[in-house]
Simulated scan of single mutants.
Amino acid sequence: MIWTHSIPQPPVPQFLRETLKDYPEIIQDIQDGLNEIVAKYLERKWGTPFNEVWEELESALSHHRFEASEALKEAEQTGDSQAIFRAKIKFDAVVEARRGPSLDELHDYFQAYKGAFE
């Protein structure tokens, strides 16, 4: 999704960017989800999507946790120790990401650009 709105894209929280730094595809998936929600609210011109953003983060991280879990199971079935190691590292990163995303950055974003949603 190309961002075409007059305000900046909503930020993926720093904690998530740091925790998932080795998985840019996950960070991009989260960014795309946030962008879609914000774009929808910008078009409506009412309300702010703060609650929906939280649900999007939870949903995206749950989805990627499931995928990482499945990849780990597949790697374990092959017995390939390097594949198991890589899959375990990714699984652990996604689990860690689910534990601590702070919404302060997103809250500040919506406060700074609240006029765009009215």
Results as ranks from 00 to 15, higher is better:
Val12Thr: 13
Ile27Leu: 12
Leu16Ala: 04
Tyr23Asn: 05
Gln14Phe: 13
Arg17Gln: 13
Ser59Pro: 05
Gly47Asn: 04
Ser69Leu: 11
Leu16Asp: 06
Arg65Ala: 05
Asp32Tyr: 03
Glu36Val: 10
His64Tyr: 12
Ile27Asp: 06
Trp54Leu: 11
Ile30Phe: 12
Arg65Ile: 03
Pro10Met: 09
Glu74Trp: 13
Phe66Thr: 14
Asn35Thr: 09
His64Leu: 02
Val53Thr: 10
Asn51His: 06
Ala39Pro: 12
Pro24Ser: 11
Tyr41Ile: 03
Glu67Pro: 01
Glu25Val: 02
Lys45Trp: 07
Leu57Gly: 01
Val38Gln: 06
Gln14Ala: 14
Leu57Asn: 00
Gln28Val: 03
Val53Leu: 15
Arg17Met: 12
Glu55Ala: 11
Leu42Gly: 03
Leu34Ala: 05
Thr19Phe: 08
Asn51Pro: 02
Pro13Trp: 11
Glu76Asp: 11
Lys40Gln: 13
Ala68Ser: 06
Val38Phe: 09
Ser69Met: 06
Trp54Lys: 12
Leu61Cys: 09
Thr19Asp: 08
Leu57Glu: 04
Pro24Thr: 02
Gln9Val: 07
Glu18Asn: 15
Leu57His: 04
Val53Pro: 01
Pro49Asn: 01
Pro49Ile: 02
Asp22Tyr: 08
Arg44Ser: 07
Glu56Gly: 05
Asn51Ser: 05
Lys73Cys: 00
Glu52Cys: 01
Glu76Gln: 15
Lys45Glu: 09
Asn35Gln: 14
Phe66Val: 09
